[in-house]
Amino acid sequence: MSVKPTMRDKRRYVSFMVEAESPVSEKEVFEAVLGSILSFLGELGYSKANPKPMKFESSTGFGILRCAATETDSVRSSLAFLSKINGKRAAIRLLSNSGSIRKLKKNFKS
């Protein structure tokens, strides 16, 4: 039996852009992102934030991460602290967050 909509966890989608000194793969990016969230928020905070990688385009560096709506600010702060991806210098540029992926993709394309 599925959970009622009112009792379901509320989610937010956070979009970001990766700027790195050399090309990075989706796996490397999300390993670094999830690692940054874990180290910054700790195990309890990570469990509350419940981050999940959604999408990453290597050609443009555009990515989307899903997280709990109540922990969006903490997740954004964690992303801002990331400075390396797989040993290469990199920076995460925060774009926007939204309740739906479609809106983020639309904003990115425009």
């Binding site: 700027e19 790195a20 000194e21 910054f40 600010d73 903490s74 954004r76 702060s77 992303l79 801002a80 602290f81 400075s83 210098r89 990199a90 920076a91 995460i92 540029r93 925060l94 774009l95």
Partner: peptide, 18 residues
């Protein structure tokens, strides 16, 4: 000290909130 260490306004605000 290099472009990768720069933080855009949104990122500085997020760090300020942290």
């Amino acid at each position: 000290s290099n472009i990768y260490e720069t933080k855009r306004p949104a990122e500085l605000i997020a760090i300020g909130c942290a």
